[in-house]
């Protein structure tokens, strides 16, 4: 499904049916998926259609821009470094290109959405929540449902810590796709309660194509500005 479609878009599999029809001179984008049918009339001409995974924080409505992945307990002694693999949900973005400008046409997902709260209600954040198993190598994933995150953890503090979740800011995500959807991230544990999560701009193996970013980080960030500071613990 992922890729660039010149003018004519026709894609069909047992779960998703995407196409562009013509209503007179007006192009109509049609998506049939999960028992629903979406129709959108394009108010302009277009040069191409792009379909790629996008930051998984948009559905069913924009409530948060944080992704939380919960996983089985990982114990990290002081100064330990470990690379693990986690799965994350995939949201699919459909863009139309016109005169080198990209516009979002549709975002959908084949995975149910669940939200959670990280931190206390008074100053915590709502997160898009996903439960993943913990893998020691790149896991097999269903291309249109799940991606694989390579997460490198480093414990900089002097105590042993237990980690059961990682929270990320979607503004810093670097999504790639190809045979699978993938990201590379890091988690630097600074104290038993504080960790910094970031994303690397490098493409993981098997994911040569960079996705179109819906959210981009601030150009003039105050402070670290390169990731999300988890300040309410990791367990």
């Amino acid at each position: 499904m992922f890729g660039r479609y010149e003018r004519d878009l026709v894609y069909a599999d047992p779960e998703v049916n995407l196409r562009i029809d013509q209503a007179g001179t007006i192009p109509v984008y049609i998506r049939e998926c999960n028992g629903t049918r979406i129709e959108k009339y394009l108010g302009t001409d277009y040069d191409a259609i792009h379909i790629c995974p996008v930051e998984p924080v948009n559905l069913p409505q924009e409530i948060t821009h944080h992704l939380e992945i919960a996983f089985p307990t990982l114990v990290l002694p002081p100064a330990a470094q470990k690379t693990i693999y986690l799965k994350f949900p995939v949201e699919i973005g459909v863009f139309f290109e016109f005169r080198h400008e990209m516009s979002v046409l549709d975002i959908f997902s084949l995975v149910p959405t669940k939200f959670s709260l990280y931190g206390p209600p008074s100053n915590g954040v709502i997160t898009r929540w996903y439960q993943s198993a913990l893998f020691h190598k790149i896991p097999e994933t269903e291309l249109h449902r799940e991606g694989a995150l390579e997460l490198s953890l480093v414990n900089h503090c002097t105590e042993t810590v237990e980690v059961t979740r990682a929270v990320f800011d979607s503004h810093h995500m670097n999504l790639f796709y190809g045979d699978r959807v993938g990201m590379t991230g890091t988690m630097e544990i600074l104290s038993p309660l504080i960790a910094l999560t970031t994303f690397a701009p490098t493409a993981p193996a098997g994911c040569p194509n960079k996705s179109i970013d819906l959210y981009t980080s601030r150009k003039f960030a105050v402070g670290p500005g390169k990731g999300y500071m988890m300040e309410s613990g990791m367990a």
């Binding site: 669940k114 939200f115 709260l117 929540w129």
Partner: peptide, 10 residues
């Protein structure tokens, strides 16, 4: 558990 807007945590 299935419903989207019921938070997983708490």
């Amino acid at each position: 558990k299935e419903y989207t807007f019921v938070l997983a945590n708490p």
